[in-house]
């Protein structure tokens, strides 16, 4: 464990807590994409399949349970909670996210480090996580009025993978043979997808005006 990875995990945890806080306290999920939340639930479900077979540390297992629990409970809130589900703007959240799942699955079947069931699903979760934010970014472009909590959620979510890239650089420099192109490229693509959001987020923060994404 290094400081970059810890910072990444804490940023990721913060993003999830910000979203849960928003949904649980104000009982609203306006501006949040259910499609992205469903993709993230699939990402965690396919990435943490080894939670029962391999144990690394209390921290590792605890964080996996938190990420699994929070992503599925967010999906539950947005789909079934009587108050929250009414605030979900399903007309705007129309990204066909299943069109992201299939290519990622095919890609994982083609490009992976080991052709085993767990490894292919783990690689699938990497590819899917890289694009999971797309429905949310599309929704933000459409709704344009981004409330602070949703903006912070996306910002933190984008930042965590950026810290992970620093973590991979650190591990490459300190651990011999630590080379994982698949993870690195997927992580880089994921962070780049946030690039324009980051740009407008900093602009709005610097000029102290409301975050507006260009149509």
């Amino acid at each position: 464990m290094n400081i970059f990875r810890l910072a990444g995990d804490m940023t990721h945890l913060a993003s999830v807590l910000v979203l849960l806080l928003k949904i649980h306290t104000i009982k609203s999920c306006a501006g949040v994409s259910l499609k992205t939340q469903e993709l993230y639930a699939i990402v965690f479900a396919t990435r943490y399949l080894d939670i029962f077979t391999s144990f690394y540390s209390i921290y590792n297992t605890l964080m996996k349970l938190i990420f699994l629990g929070s992503s599925f409970s967010i999906v539950w809130y947005m789909r079934y909670h009587k108050t929250v589900r009414r605030t979900y703007d399903r007309e705007q959240d129309t990204f066909r996210h299943w069109f992201l799942v299939l290519p990622c699955l095919l890609l994982a079947l083609l490009i992976h480090e080991k052709f085993t069931f767990l490894e292919v699903l783990w690689t699938f979760s990497l590819y899917l996580e890289a694009v999971a934010i797309l429905p949310q970014l599309v929704l933000l472009q459409r709704t344009r009025n981004i409330d602070n909590l949703t903006g912070q959620y996306v910002f933190l979510l984008g930042g965590y993978r950026g810290f992970y890239i620093l973590n991979w650089i650190y591990r490459y420099l300190t651990e011999p043979h630590f080379v994982h192109w698949i993870t690195w490229i997927a992580g880089l693509v994921q962070t780049l997808l946030y690039a324009d959001f980051f740009y407008y987020y900093f602009q709005s923060w610097k000029n102290n005006k409301k975050l507006q994404l260009p149509a």
């Binding site: 995990d9 590792n60 480090e113 043979h177 630590f178």
Partner: peptide, 10 residues
């Protein structure tokens, strides 16, 4: 076992 080294990440 090197591959496992990545699996301890979240």
């Amino acid at each position: 076992c090197l591959q496992e080294s990545l699996k301890d990440e979240l």
